[in-house]
Design a protein around this nucleic acid. Structure first.
Lengths: 203, 203
DNA sequence: ACCCCAATCTTGTCATTGGAAAGTTCCTGG
DNA sequence: CCAGGAACTTTCCAATGACAAGATTGGGGT
């Protein structure tokens, strides 16, 4: 894939039809290729077939575009975690965390770099809090303490986040072996972490 | 601190004396303030009191400068981990990981973003492998399996890395409370993680 | 059916940036 | 004392982010 989204929904000669989406998609591709800052707004405009100032109209500036990417990322993220938490097994929420990072690496690369966007964007904040609630609620079930141990929450969150980050950066030897499945490795890691804890409490 | 290093070791009017160091220090300050890409080479040159082309002479280009920062970071990192591993308690190596990230947040922010520098730089690779060896060796002692479980190594590494990253990004509520000590919180987290494992094997 | 208007997109412009090229100053070794 | 090289400067160019002002178009109200 990659160039599929280029030039789609080109309505008339003047009005693109769905430029906002097209620019975000171009940004996602560019981030995949060169990181969250390794491209130019003008290159995205070229890729979408519009003038260099067209993206500015929709996003204001570069930070505005990255805000949109981060907000979309947090929405997809919250949805993925919520869907997985409904299944009951919290260990799988950690796996979903990693799966999201690998499948949406461009979104993920922006989300946790607040200096690149406007962290007070309302839609973004709402989605971020939604994801945070799933993590906090789920981690409570992992803990041996009845009240829910904050340290356990942080441990699970840190492990999932760290594993995802290390995998994406290629810091793990496993990540450079194309035969390895990130989700399977992550599952083994999470199992190793809490093997002394409570299996699955009744309530 | 901050502006202390500015204009130090200014020898004659023409030769700066130690421009290489001055530019790296200026870069570290700039990264602290605006992230690893939120500044310009020319601004660093102004801060160091030299012409905009002077840094190029020492580092070739922006990626060259960031390569130097990352290499220095990995050297400091390896030294910190090695010093801590000598003490024996591996849990403290994880704390040292976090301490390094917090105390050298500019270095840390560059080190794990290989797309910003030249990852095949020899000095950098050597220091990185040195740090990796400490982590791998130490994690072996954490494992219940006599052979040393790879999943445990990854779990410990992921947790330390993830906690450090979340803390620096301000994603953790604890990180926004100035009264909280990152090392103390990290210690609690690591204790919670492996509380079911072997305490401290004899050998 | 018509026209106005607001959203969308364009062209034009400007300061700033990264990087290359060529010249200048200074130190050091022979 | 001088040749050569390292350190730094000035000059130049294409690309970029951001802004201003103008062109185009589809849709809503009458």
């Amino acid at each position: 894939m990659g160039h599929i989204s280029r030039q789609i929904s080109q309505a008339s000669g003047y009005h693109h039809g769905n430029l906002r989406r097209a620019v975000i998609d171009a940004a996602l591709e560019a981030i995949d290729e060169s990181g969250p800052t390794g491209w130019s707004l003008r290159a995205l405009a070229r890729r979408a077939g519009v003038s260099h100032a067209a993206p500015v109209h929709h996003f204001g500036d570069k930070a505005g575009l990255l805000t949109a990417v981060a907000a979309e990322g947090y929405e997809l993220f919250a949805a993925a975690l919520e869907a997985c938490a409904a299944e009951g097994d919290f260990q799988e929420v950690g796996v979903a965390y990693v799966r999201f990072a690998v499948r949406h690496r461009a979104h993920f690369a922006v989300m946790f770099r607040p200096e690149l966007y406007r962290p007070d964007d309302p839609a973004l904040v709402a989605a971020r809090d939604r994801a945070g609630a799933v993590l906090a609620a789920g981690a409570r079930r992992l803990s041996a303490e009845p009240a829910g141990d904050r340290a356990v929450t942080l441990a699970a969150w840190s492990a999932a986040h760290g594993f995802a980050g290390l995998w994406l950066d290629g810091a793990l030897p496993e990540a450079r072996d194309p035969g390895q499945d990130p989700e399977a490795v992550a599952r083994r890691v999470f199992r190793a972490m809490f093997r002394g804890g409570p299996g699955e409490p009744a309530a």
